[in-house]
């Protein structure tokens, strides 16, 4: 890394955040997604869309699109890795604290990134339930 500034004077973000910001995993859209969750933080304008592919109650694929700060992008990315292979029950347990831990912590003032992504995940799981409702009713 070229920047002397960032690492010497601005150790604000964990290495994991910087890794996921620099090389975000699972960016993009799942065209035939089984669930989509879209959240926007009205205050700062950060927006996330999470796409899930679900088979037999297990999340088999996850992709995201996020317009946001470094933290929002990194947490979005780490979340797609985190939920893959998890059951819907397990995914429902993931909250903003889990997501903060998953990137080795967020600096003060950046915890909203965890809220945004946790809400998008919740919205996606809600969307799946709504789509499934006519069949299961």
């Amino acid at each position: 890394m070229k920047s002397a500034l960032l690492y010497r004077y601005m150790p604000r973000y964990s290495t994991k955040v910087m890794d996921h910001f620099t090389n975000p995993r699972n960016v993009g859209v799942i065209e035939d997604a089984d669930a989509v969750g879209r959240e926007r933080n009205p205050a700062c304008g950060d927006t996330m869309t999470l796409y899930l592919k679900i088979r037999d109650g297990i999340i088999v694929d996850a992709r995201f699109q996020t317009l946001g700060c470094t933290a929002s992008i990194a947490v979005s990315s780490v979340t797609t890795e985190l939920v893959k292979g998890k059951s819907l029950e397990e995914a429902r347990m993931i909250d903003r604290h889990c997501l903060g831990d998953a990137v080795d912590g967020l600096p003060p003032g950046k915890t909203h990134a965890g809220v945004l992504v946790a809400d998008a995940l919740k919205a996606a799981l809600g969307d799946y339930k709504t789509r499934a409702a006519p069949d299961t009713a």
Binding site: S3, L6, A43, C44, T70, I73
Partner: peptide
């Protein structure tokens, strides 16, 4: 289509110091 804070981090990683009036910064 971008957030200023992410642009600042991206620039900083290239050794460029700038600033943004966006929220989050």
């Amino acid at each position: 289509g971008v957030a200023g804070e992410s642009v600042l981090l991206g620039l900083d990683m290239e050794g460029i110091a700038a600033s943004s009036g966006s929220a989050c910064t």
